[in-house]
Structure formats: structure tokens, C-alpha cells
């Protein structure tokens, strides 16, 4: 647990928080501006607003945001003698990898919270929607955060291996494009086992877009959660093995 707590300390004054706040707010703003400019109505209230904001957000920005966060949490380790110090401590490779993922999971959860909050504020202030969004969006949000984990684990591994900040983000862009193609072309089986595809699929949950039926059923939720956790475990195990064999240069 020491390594996880230490990782959270490193977030102090980190640029990560800027990503966590700005990215979801940008998504909300884009959705709102599009609606206002095109003079469309929110025909189905909260559901339409969710569609306008989250569907696009889940196709590209979210994966890129997670990638940027992964690059940011690793960037500090690539500076000075930090790599040497990190691995010169009695901490196993798996602990190092899991600690970073724990931080990314927390950041992803924070990002989703900002998105939800932004959505509620926009719905109330701009469109004067009645009540609050249905509770199922809370469940969908949890699924989205869980689906961020495999992408976070994979991007964390890439950022661990690459000193560059941009290169892993570029990989995420390619991954997101591939993920979108899988989701749009309705190859759901494959999308579920590719981290970027899974994230794309999870953000469409309950929207009725592409492969989604529009209903949030126990079966779909269970499949998404199981895929997310399974993929994360596999990527973490792989990354820890790689780190264990790595020469720190």
C-alpha cells in the first residue's frame, strides 16, 4: 500500500488535474454549443444531452485524455535519477505498475465525475431541464471508469517504456481510431477485447448508438465489466513482467 500512497503524493501540483478538469468540460461545452448553434431541441431531455456529450467524448477525447494522464504520471520518473531511485527500493515491479494504475484509475474517476457534474450544470442552467439525470447514468459512469482501466494500464506501460510524452498519446490516437472502426462496423466481439474498442463500446452504453441496443441490461454491463477487469489484469501482468526484465539505463 505504501507505493500507492506514495503515488498519490506525486499528484500534488501535477498538470494531471488540468486534464481531469478541462477535458470533460470541453466535451460538455462542445455538446452544448452544438445544440444551441444548430437550434435543436433536447427532444428527450437528459438522454439527448447525454448523447450529444458522451458519445463523441467516448470516441476520441477520453482515450487521448487517459493517454495524456498516463504520460504525465510517468513523466516525472523519466527525469533525473528517479528511475534508479524508484527501482532501487524494495518494491516489486508489480507494485510499481499497480501503484501507477491506481493513480490513473482515481484520475479517470475524477474525470468522469467532472463530466457528470458539467452535464448536470449545463442541463440545469442552459436548457432548464427538469429534475436530475436518471440514476442509470451513474451506473453507466461506473462502467465507463472501469472501461478506462485497460486503456490506462496499456498507456501506462507504453509511457513507462517511452521517455517521450507524445509518442504514447499518438499510439492512443491510433488505438482510438481502431476502436471507433470496430464499434462503428459493429464487430462487437473484437471491440470487447481491444482496450480502445472496449472503452468506445462502454461509452455508447444505453445510447442506442452503433452496436448498442439502447437498454442498460445486466448482461451487457456484466460483459463490459468482466472484459474490462480481465483485460486490465492481463495488461498489468504483462507490464510487470516486462519491467522485471528491463535494464534501467
Amino acid at each position: 500500500m505504501g507505493s500507492v500512497r506514495a503515488e498519490f503524493l506525486k499528484l500534488k501540483r501535477s498538470l494531471s488535474w488540468a486534464v481531469v478538469v478541462l477535458l470533460p468540460l470541453m466535451a460538455v461545452t462542445t455538446g452544448v454549443v452544438n445544440t444551441v448553434v444548430s437550434d435543436q431541441q433536447l427532444g428527450n431531455g437528459w438522454h439527448t444531452l447525454w448523447l450529444r456529450v458522451v458519445v463523441f467524448y467516448g470516441l476520441f477525447p477520453l482515450a487521448l485524455g487517459v493517454a495524456a494522464l498516463a504520460s504525465l504520471v510517468w513523466r516525472v520518473e523519466h527525469r533525473g535519477g528517479n528511475w534508479n531511485a524508484l527501482m532501487g527500493r524494495p518494491v516489486s515491479s508489480a507494485q510499481v505498475v499497480i501503484a501507477k494504475l491506481a493513480v490513473l484509475a482515481a484520475l479517470a474517476a475524477a474525470m468522469q465525475t467532472v463530466l457528470l457534474a458539467g452535464l448536470v450544470v449545463a442541463g440545469k442552467l442552459v436548457f432548464a431541464l427538469p429534475g436530475i439525470p436518471p440514476a442509470r447514468y451513474l451506473l453507466v459512469s461506473v462502467v465507463i471508469v472501469l472501461a478506462c482501466l485497460p486503456v490506462a494500464a496499456l498507456q501506462s506501460g507504453l509511457s513507462m517504456l517511452m521517455r517521450s510524452f507524445a509518442a504514447p498519446v499518438a499510439v492512443a490516437l491510433l488505438g482510438a481510431v481502431g476502436g471507433v472502426l470496430l464499434v462503428v462496423t459493429r464487430v462487437e466481439g473484437v471491440a470487447m477485447v481491444v482496450p480502445y474498442g472496449l472503452l468506445g463500446r462502454a461509452t455508447q452504453l444505453g445510447t442506442g448508438m452503433f452496436v448498442d441496443s439502447g437498454a442498460v441490461t445486466t448482461g451487457v454491463v456484466a460483459a463490459l465489466v468482466a472484459a474490462a477487469l480481465g483485460l486490465t489484469a492481463a495488461v498489468v501482468a504483462g507490464t510487470a513482467t516486462v519491467l522485471d526484465r528491463l535494464d534501467i539505463r
Binding site: 503524493l9 506525486k10 500534488k12 501540483r13 501535477s14 516525472v76 527525469r79 533525473g80 535519477g81 528517479n82 534508479n84 531511485a85 524508484l86 532501487g88
Partner: peptide, 14 residues
């Protein structure tokens, strides 16, 4: 074992 290899460690933003 305490060690200090190559450049000093520590996080600049802390």
C-alpha cells in the same frame, strides 16, 4: 542498501 545513481532523484514539483 541506500543508493544514489547518476543524477540525483526527487520530484521537482514537490
Amino acid at each position: 542498501i541506500g543508493s544514489l545513481i547518476e543524477s540525483p532523484p526527487a520530484y521537482g514539483h514537490l
